[in-house]
């Protein structure tokens, strides 16, 4: 069973994303800001991280920068899930968010669960 880390400062967002992922047979760990996200990622080495962008104590972008510069976590794929409208347009394809010249798939909130699951599956398998 794959393990996913969900990082979002809104506990109710974390809750709904978690229950959706669990229903699709993923094991889910959570964090409530960028700093905790980094810690949990280093501790548990999840197969993928679903990351919010606007958060206190390290934004999603800053957290990804840290994780990508750490040999132990730099291989972990990241999907951004954000309400910042300017970052993501709700097109057919996932949007992209650029951190340090590197592009990551990004979904806008409100997200379509089938899109989120599809993007996760693309990166980690079932």
């Amino acid at each position: 069973m794959k393990t996913l880390l969900v990082v979002d400062d809104r506990s109710d967002v974390v809750e709904v994303v978690k229950s959706r992922l669990q229903a699709n047979n993923y094991q889910v760990i959570v964090a409530s800001d960028g700093r905790e996200g980094i810690k949990k990622a280093q501790q548990y080495k999840p197969d993928l991280i679903v990351m919010d962008i606007l958060m206190p104590n390290y934004s999603g972008g800053e957290a990804v920068k840290v994780l990508k510069s750490d040999a132990a976590t730099k291989h972990i794929p990241v999907i951004f899930l954000t309400a910042a409208a300017s970052s993501v347009a709700d097109g057919e394809e996932p949007g992209r968010v650029c951190v340090d010249g590197q592009f990551y798939p990004a979904l806008g909130k409100p997200f379509k669960p089938e899109k989120l699951l599809f993007e996760i599956k693309k990166l980690v398998g079932d």
Binding site: R10, V16, R20, A85, K109, P110, F111
Partner: peptide, 25 residues
């Protein structure tokens, strides 16, 4: 921009909650 962000976050919770009930989770 903030208004948009502040509306989108609760909308995502509403959408996902309804969607999960509807999907029979």
């Amino acid at each position: 921009n903030n208004v948009s962000h502040e509306i989108r976050t609760p909308l995502s919770i509403i959408r996902e909650s309804i969607s999960q009930v509807s999907d029979g989770l």
